[in-house]
Write a protein that binds this DNA or RNA. Structure first.
Lengths: 337, 337
DNA sequence: TCTACCCAGCGACGCGCTTCGACGAAAGAG
DNA sequence: CTCTTTCGTCGAAGCGCGTCGCTGGGTAGA
């Protein structure tokens, strides 16, 4: 494995010159630069990561903490993770994958060992035990998600409050009066994941302004649980004419069940989903949906974290504006029974 | 941030002694060891990753290359990735996430820079361009998946040939004569991903022995494409009494479509899926399925890669035996029309 | 012509750790 | 009681790179 010194010898310059060619931190004559660069190529030189990290106290690594649980919609997590990795490479950084398993200890370990220069944390709960550690840590961090108290932190998230409101607006405009929310798994609410509660709040508040009634039922996402949730919804509120689906996993089963029950979408029941575009497009009915911009969130998180690494200011809270796309699953409310 | 030297001073010993306490590579008296350990705790010392990597030329990092594409069933990928990360931590290692985007160059970069001690590569194609690089590389690697020529490599995979055969056996035993395979997306075959072709081969071969007829149709997994595939299957082979579903995404749509068409499962049509247990259990009918042991594959890959890092021998090819679980979606073939 | 300055490049040091050889003390062999 | 081992510890030499301060030569201004 070639070293800096070998490249230097090969190019007939000193090691420091090669280093400056690589970093561009001092001016180098065109001629030398080209000679050094060709030596680098010829020897297939790649700087040693450890040595570079030691000397510069920068590892060029960003740690990404992903949740361990599987009650969240996994493809979204994966999409964010891949977007983070891709964006980080664009800044010459790599991504270290930390699972939630280690818990807050991972934060300490990675920060203290200098393994990573910064941290991106996903699946943040309202009262997350990692948050105090991040706040005190010397290393920059960015959260994907919004804790109850974001003071002193940098957060990126979809504006879930506005998302809920947007769904309410759309349904109100179509004349719906009774709306049911097919929510996330009960466990998601129990551990106070921010986005689920914020969506609900946003929707309820706006629905109230529109004079709509809202009921909400958690849903595990399996066919069986979805069937149970739907049954209870229509039992309790037979006039329900619109469903907002928060749990992407429930989308498929729900459409199947509605069809089976002879409820036409959107003639009898309108459906709005909060899900990735792909899910909305692959369903049996093209779904009116608010997109979950996973890639965008990953990209933004990386940009913010890079800004902080480089000592620039970063906006404390970035809420991405939701976008509702009208497709075939929503229509005017059926005239009252 | 505390350093080794500070711990040494605090404990009244030399730096090398602290190092040996940490690594256990030389004997240390009980007394000194305890004193050093308490100093470590008191100072909150974590060894600097860069320095350690430089001095020992071991980064304690394993690189994991995941595919960029989204035409594979993503949750399986994610489950493997998390299993790899978790298992690696058990060996005191961390996982670096590389996306396919950088392509083979990533292999070179990571190997040459000493960023990672070893590599685990997912989504291997039959003729994968990363394979020659891995074979020549000085660093250990393990593939999840099986290329056409696994010579000189270490691979872990589900035995997809046996998986196909197992499905054939089960259906033959139930008296089915006409079987249709709802396959992966066409793109998966086009790039010659091993598992898809092997499953099909295994199934076809065994089916022939049982005197069953098999047709195979690729399926993108969306509701629409699944509908198209099903229609063509029953048009071409009206006597089809059993479906083997290879593309997990198609499971939900398919069951919905069968119900809609008035085909009862398993009375009219039996269904066998190759999918994670969770998918089989959450469907509208509990599915007879061959499990995709994502966690097991991740775990095994890490164990093999650790063996190679430590200079031990590793079995060249590990094929996990498939397990078919009979549930509610398969039954005796309907007596001939 | 002399000073002031900038440009290119060099040498040396240090980042924090691992590891090798050495050494004194204690223990066992003859 | 001496000679060899073994044990526990230390000091020093790097690992490969980044960075600081310095220098020799060239340029420009006075």
């Amino acid at each position: 494995m070639a070293t800096l010194a070998e490249v230097a010898r090969h190019a007939g310059v000193s090691a420091s010159t090669v280093s400056y060619v690589l970093s561009g931190k001092r001016s180098i004559s065109e001629e030398t630069r080209l000679r050094v660069e060709s030596s680098i190529r010829e020897l297939g030189y790649h700087p040693n990561a450890g040595a570079r990290a030691l000397a510069s106290s920068r590892s060029h690594i960003i740690a990404l903490m992903v949740p361990l649980r599987t009650d969240m919609y996994v493809p979204v997590m994966m999409e964010i993770a891949i977007a983070v990795a891709t964006a980080a490479r664009g800044f010459g950084h790599d991504v270290l994958l930390l699972t939630g398993e280690e818990g807050p200890e991972a934060v300490r370990r990675v920060a203290a060992s200098g393994l990573a220069d910064a941290m991106i944390v996903m699946d943040v709960e309202l009262e997350d035990e990692r948050v105090p550690l991040l706040r005190e840590s010397a290393r920059p961090s960015v959260l994907i998600g919004l804790p109850a108290d974001p003071a002193g932190l940098t957060c990126v998230d979809l504006d879930f409050g506005a998302t809920g409101a947007l769904c309410a607006d759309h349904l109100a405009q179509l004349g719906h009066r009774d709306v049911a929310v097919v929510g996330e798994a009960a466990a998601v609410y129990q551990r106070h994941t921010g986005f689920a509660e914020r969506t609900l709040d946003g929707l309820r508040t706006r629905a109230k302004e529109h004079g709509m009634r809202v009921i909400h039922r958690p849903c595990e996402g399996s066919y069986e649980s979805t069937a149970g949730v739907l049954a209870r919804i229509f039992e309790e509120r037979p006039d329900t004419s619109a469903l907002v689906v928060q749990n992407e996993a429930a989308v498929g089963p729900m459409l199947a069940l509605l069809r089976q029950q002879g409820r036409a979408v959107p003639e009898d029941v309108s459906v709005v989903a909060i899900c990735p575009e792909q899910v909305a497009l692959q369903a049996s009915v093209q779904l009116t949906s608010v997109a979950l911009p996973a890639q965008e969130m990953g990209r933004q998180a990386v940009e913010l974290v890079m800004a902080k690494i480089e000592g620039r200011e970063a906006a404390p809270v970035t809420l991405l504006p939701p976008q509702l796309t009208v497709r075939a699953s929503t229509g005017p409310a059926p005239s009252a029974a």
